[in-house]
C-alpha cells in the first residue's frame, strides 16, 4: 500500500524569491490494487503529486511509505526497480534513441517485432511502423503519448502512475485506452485525468483543489465535481 504522511511541497519562485506552496499537508493512503483517478483544476498540483510518489522530486517535508516501508529517500531508479511505473504528462524526445531502444530498456530484454507488437498494439500502434522510429520531433504529439504508455506497459510493475494519458489521443481509440487501464486489474493504478469517461471507470477519486484535497469512492466524489464555481468544490476559503 502507498501512503503519504503530512507531505508538503513548496518551490521558491526564481523571480520573486518567494516560497510558493504547491501541495500542503497531504496525508492519505491509496487503496491497494484499485484504480484511483486524481482530478482537479490546472495547476492544482496533480502532476506534482505523481512526481513526488515516483521520486522525480522530493517533498519539502513529510514521508512516503510503500508496503509499510519508508521510501521518502529512495531515488527514482530505486523506486522504478521496486515496481513503480510512470507515464509522464509530457513525454520526452530523444535524438538518436528509437522506440525499440526504450522498449528494450523498459522490459530489460531485446524485443523482437512480435514482442513490441504486444505493447504497441495495446496503445493502437502498429509495431512495424514504429519500432525503429526515433523518439525525436518527427513523431506527433499523440504518437509520442501512446508510445510513452507502451513503454510503461513494457516495463510493467505493481504501481502505475499515468499523468493525463488520454491527452492528445483521438476519440476513436479512447475506448481501447480505457480498456487498457481496466486490464491492469490487480495492480494499483493512479491516473491523473480530466476526462469524465475515465473518472467513471475509477474505483476511487482524489480531488485536489487549492490547499485542500479529498479522497473517496467514486460515489462520494463525483457529485462534488458538479458544484460551481469550479474552485470551491471542497468549500475552500480561497477566493
Amino acid at each position: 500500500m502507498l501512503e503519504l504522511k503530512k507531505v508538503n511541497y513548496a518551490v521558491v519562485d526564481e523571480k520573486t524569491k518567494q516560497e510558493k506552496v504547491v501541495l500542503k499537508d497531504i496525508t492519505l493512503a491509496f487503496p491497494e490494487n484499485k484504480l484511483t483517478v486524481i482530478t482537479g483544476q490546472n495547476g492544482s498540483g496533480k502532476s506534482t503529486l505523481i512526481k513526488l510518489i515516483m521520486g522525480v522530486i522530493s517533498p519539502t517535508s513529510g514521508k512516503i511509505f510503500y508496503n509499510g516501508k519508508d521510501i521518502t529517500k529512495l531515488r527514482l531508479d530505486e523506486r522504478a526497480n521496486l515496481g513503480f511505473t510512470i507515464a509522464f504528462q509530457q513525454p520526452v524526445r530523444f535524438k538518436g534513441l528509437t522506440v525499440k531502444n526504450l522498449l528494450d530498456v523498459a522490459s530489460e530484454k531485446s524485443n523482437k517485432l512480435s514482442d513490441a507488437c504486444e505493447y504497441l498494439s495495446k496503445v493502437g500502434l502498429c509495431a512495424k511502423n514504429y519500432i525503429n522510429r526515433e523518439l525525436d520531433s518527427t513523431l506527433s504529439g499523440g504518437e509520442l503519448k501512446r508510445i510513452e504508455l507502451a513503454i510503461s506497459l513494457a516495463k510493467g510493475g505493481n504501481l502505475y502512475l499515468f499523468d493525463e494519458p488520454e491527452a492528445g489521443i483521438d476519440l476513436w481509440s479512447f475506448e481501447n485506452l480505457v480498456d487498457l487501464f481496466k486490464g491492469l486489474k490487480g495492480k494499483t493504478v493512479i491516473i491523473v485525468s480530466h476526462q469524465e469517461k475515465i473518472l467513471e471507470k475509477a474505483d476511487y477519486l482524489l480531488l485536489i483543489e487549492n490547499d485542500n484535497y479529498k479522497l473517496g469512492t467514486k460515489k462520494e466524489i463525483l457529485p462534488l465535481l458538479k458544484i460551481e464555481p469550479k474552485c470551491k468544490k471542497l468549500g475552500g476559503q480561497n477566493e
Binding site: 531515488r75 527514482l76 531508479d77 510512470i86 530523444f94 528509437t98 523498459a106 513503454i151 516495463k155
Partner: peptide, 23 residues
C-alpha cells in the same frame, strides 16, 4: 528530463547518461 525518463525505467544516472550518448 531525458535522464529522469530513463531512470524511471530503472537505469542508474550513469547508465542513463551512457545510453543517451550512445544513441
Amino acid at each position: 528530463e531525458q535522464l529522469l525518463k530513463l531512470m524511471s525505467l530503472g537505469l542508474s544516472h550513469e547508465e542513463a547518461e551512457n545510453l543517451i550518448i550512445k544513441g
